[in-house]
Design a protein around this nucleic acid. Structure first.
Length: 280
DNA sequence: ACCCAGGCGGGCG
DNA sequence: CGCCCGCATGGG
């Protein structure tokens, strides 16, 4: 079955490729995104001219809701752009990657991929994620999908080593144990980003940056501002004349400058820095 | 061969 | 506290 969505200010390619959870395991071939979730298959193609989204799924009702949620199609980008366009560099970043969305993903899924992401590169994060899905993924009629917490309950360290997680393997084991015995991730949904971070920081292997990523991309807290090496580099270069600034000060800077939409600002900074840093 | 990657924990001063 | 080091692995 098929359906059409016509979102404004949306770019599927940028949103998929910009280092967010779905990009670490979904397929994007011939400009067609496809992935399995909740026992359904979703395919999305964006028309190059009109920007309209053509959806295919076994359940078109599900697919519409899933894609709208995942890519935050309800966000008023005009308003968000207006709020975060506080300087020339951000305006250029928005112009260059217009339609890039922060995505909204399952909290557990987000936690897992960003634990894998530490001291790692995009290619290896994806390879490891795909191997975890192969090993632990939920089997459906359309293929395997990202494993839930329960799917990992009998996992051991050698499974994660085999998936290439290396020293992160014991972090995964601790996350599984902690989220099973001490912390129900579903209970964090209605908390604010600061409280969510405080809870996640109890997990060994989760620090300030990963906690911000989960708050932003796993819980949709748009004020969360993950600061990785790229964000630090670009902020220091563009806004501080190349001088070294502490993470704490950079957080204050971002909160002051971009406020409740700092997470969106972060995604544009990140993707611009990743693609053009040497030229900026 | 060698370097480095969307960081973090632990130990030391 | 802040700083610094090691960490598993494999892609470029």
């Amino acid at each position: 079955m098929r359906a059409i969505l016509k979102p404004k200010d949306f770019n599927l390619k940028y949103s998929f490729e910009s280092g967010q959870p779905l990009g670490f395991y979904a397929d994007f071939l011939d400009n067609i995104l496809s992935y399995n979730v909740h026992s359904h298959i979703v395919r999305v193609k964006q028309d190059a001219d009109s920007g309209a989204l053509k959806l295919e799924s076994d359940s078109i009702q599900f697919a519409k809701a899933e894609v709208s949620s995942r890519f935050r199609l309800g966000d008023n980008m005009e308003r968000i752009y207006n709020e975060i366009s506080t300087d020339r560099f951000m305006e250029q970043s928005i112009q260059k990657y217009n339609g890039l969305r922060v995505t909204l993903n399952d909290p557990w899924e987000t936690l897992v991929v960003f634990i894998i992401s530490q001291n790692n590169n995009i290619k290896r994060i994806r390879n490891s994620t795909l191997r975890l899905i192969e090993r632990f993924g939920k089997v459906t009629q359309f293929g395997k999908e990202f494993p839930s917490l329960d799917d990992f309950l009998d996992a051991n360290e050698s499974d994660f080593k085999a998936a290439g997680l290396g020293f992160r393997s014991r972090y995964m084991l601790h996350a599984i144990e902690y989220c099973t015995d001490n912390l129900d991730l579903r209970m964090l949904k209605n908390k604010d980003s600061s409280d969510i971070k405080d809870e996640l920081l109890q997990i060994k292997g989760v620090g300030d940056k990963i906690a911000d990523c989960v708050a932003l991309m796993g819980y949709g807290k748009l004020d969360a501002f993950p600061i990785d090496v790229w964000i630090k580099r670009i902020l220091e270069k563009v806004y501080f004349k190349g001088t070294t600034i502490s993470i704490e000060r950079l957080h204050d800077f971002a909160a002051d400058k971009w406020g409740k939409y700092a997470g969106y600002a972060q995604q544009y900074l990140y993707w611009n820095a990743r693609n053009n840093f040497s030229m900026l």
